[in-house]
């Protein structure tokens, strides 16, 4: 059974590219456009990994990550943070909140795919 990935981002073209990349690797993909939606999909779809943008409307990526980490049943869920803000403090904050990886935009597609693969393979 294919591993599941949730893409949470509000920029349509970025979502499109991520969706393409993940589907090409054979993962099952769902998309969320804002923080609330992302949390709803996490509960419903229970993805193995979430690609989480920080600047999400309604509820930002930090909050979503925190929610995920505070629930024991999603302990194994991998979280990869994506952001256009490249500050060190934010990276530290994301990692402190329990994100498994932190990737700045614009990202190298190969690197992103390799990272996702690595995380999901470790899980298997």
């Amino acid at each position: 059974m294919a591993q599941k990935i949730l893409i949470a981002d509000d920029e349509p073209n970025i979502v499109l590219s991520l969706e393409f990349l993940m589907k090409r690797e054979g993962y099952e993909v769902r998309v969320a456009e804002n923080g609330d939606d992302a949390l709803a999909q996490v509960a419903e779809f229970t993805p193995d990994l979430v690609l989480l943008d920080i600047m999400l409307p309604r509820r930002n990526g930090f909050e979503v990550c925190q929610q995920i980490r505070s629930s024991p049943q999603w302990r194994d869920m991998k979280v990869v943070m994506l952001t256009a803000k490249g500050r060190d403090t934010e990276m530290q904050k994301g990692l402190a909140l329990g994100a498994d990886a932190y990737i700045t935009k614009p990202f190298a597609t190969k690197e992103l795919v390799a990272r996702v693969k690595e995380l999901l393979d470790g899980k298997r």
């Binding site: 920029e11 590219s17 256009a84 935009k105 614009p106 190298a108």
Partner: peptide, 12 residues
């Protein structure tokens, strides 16, 4: 960075 991200991703 936001438009740049899309541009780079699709170019790659």
């Amino acid at each position: 960075r936001t438009p740049l991200t899309s541009i780079r991703a699709f170019a790659e």
